[in-house]
Simulated assay, not measured.
Amino acid sequence: MSRPPTFTPPPCARAHRLRTGRGDFAVLDASPRTAPRGTALLLPGYTGSKEDFIALLEPLCAAGYRTVSVDGRGQYETEGTDRQETYAQGELARDVLAQAAALDGPVHLLGHSLGGQIARAAVLLDASPFRSLTLMSSGPAQVAEAQQVKVKMLSDALATLSMAEVWEAMLALDPPEDAATDGEALRRRWLLHRPAQLIATGRQLVSEPDRVAELAAAALPFHVLSGERDDTWPVPLLDEMAQRLGARRTRIAGAEHSPNTDRPEQTASALTSFWDSL
C-alpha cells in the first residue's frame, strides 16, 4: 500500500471535483501563480489515491506546471459501484480521456504502478489529448510473481471479509517501520475504496499482457521513471521497456516502488526536466 507522508495538500492546491462527461472525479488541483507552462494529470496506483502525489504538488507548481492528481472511479473520494465490470480497464481508460478533456488538454499524463497501465490503455485508445506519457514504477505486463500471490490473497479476502476486517488483517502483517504515517487517514482511505474496484483492478495487475510495441507506435514522448529498487516490476525489466519505447529513463536514487513519496524533490526535478525538454 502506498503511504503518503501527509493527507494535507500544500497551499498551492485545492481539493474539488472535476466535472467530466463521465462523471465527477475527486482531485487535488495545484496551479502556479503565473500562467502555467503546461498541465499534468497524475493517476495513482493500486490501493492508492490522489494524496500519493501531495509531496510533488508544490515543486511542480514552483516549476510552472498545473498539476492535477485524481482519484479514479471507486478510489477513495470518487464514487463507484459494486459491479466489477464498472472497473474494466477500457472503462477506466475512457475516464482518463474524459479527465484530460475537462482539463482543456493536451496534458502531460503520468501513471504510477496500476495507474501507468490505465494511462497506457488511455493512450492506446486515443493519444491526441496527451503531450507526453510518464510511466512511474509501472512495467510492461503483469506484476512479479510474488506480487501476484499478494494480490490474489487480497482479492480472496475482499470476497469474503468486510473492508474493516481486511484492514485489521493487513495491519497485523505490517512491520512496525511501515506504519509510521497517518494511520487513521490511511484507514479512512482504505474503507472508502470500493471492494469491486480492488478486485477488478487486482485481476488486471496479475493478467496484464505486454503492450509495449503497441504503445511505441503511439509516437508520444515517453518517460520511464522508477526507484533504484522495485519489488513489483524488476528494475532491469523497466530498463528494457524504456529501450523498447525509445523513452527517457530515470532512476531515482534512494527510492523504491514509490519515488513520489520516497524522494519527491528528486522525482519532481526529473519530471520537470522531461516536460521542459518538450
Rank of each mutant, 00 (worst) to 15 (best):
R249L: 13
G74V: 06
G80Q: 06
A40D: 04
L18T: 07
G64K: 14
M163W: 09
A122P: 06
A179L: 15
L198Y: 03
C12W: 13
T34D: 14
L186W: 08
E240P: 08
A185K: 04
T39W: 12
A30G: 06
G183L: 15
A88P: 02
G115A: 07
V206D: 03
A63M: 11
Q89Y: 14
I54M: 00
P11G: 02
I118V: 14
L158G: 13
L109Q: 04
K50D: 00
R249Q: 11
G105C: 12
A213Q: 14
Q89F: 14
L238Q: 07
A100V: 09
A26E: 06
A55T: 01
V96E: 04
S258D: 06
P236L: 11
S207T: 15
M170D: 04
L215D: 00
S226P: 06
L103H: 03
M241L: 09
T20M: 11
D82T: 14
A13H: 06
P236H: 13
P209C: 04
S277K: 09
G48V: 08
V206G: 01
G90V: 03
T47F: 05
K152M: 06
P140T: 07
V224E: 04
L158C: 11
V149D: 10
S162L: 05
E51K: 09
I199R: 15
E165G: 14
A63K: 12
E165C: 09
P176E: 10
P176F: 11
L192E: 10
S69R: 03
G48I: 06
V235M: 00
A35Q: 14
P11W: 10
R189T: 07
T8Q: 04
R37I: 13
T34W: 12
G111E: 08
L42N: 05
K152C: 00
G21Q: 13
V212S: 13
L97A: 00
L245P: 06
T81F: 15
V107N: 13
S207V: 07
S132Q: 08
L237Y: 12
A185M: 04
H223K: 05
E145V: 15
G111L: 01
A196R: 13
A101Q: 12
R66M: 12
L124M: 13
L18F: 08
I118W: 02
T160M: 10
A200D: 03
L191W: 12
W190D: 03
A247M: 07
Q266T: 10
R244G: 00
D210L: 03
H257Q: 07
D52W: 09
S273Q: 15
D239C: 13
M153W: 14
R248Q: 14
G202N: 03
E91T: 13
G48N: 05
E214P: 04
R94N: 10
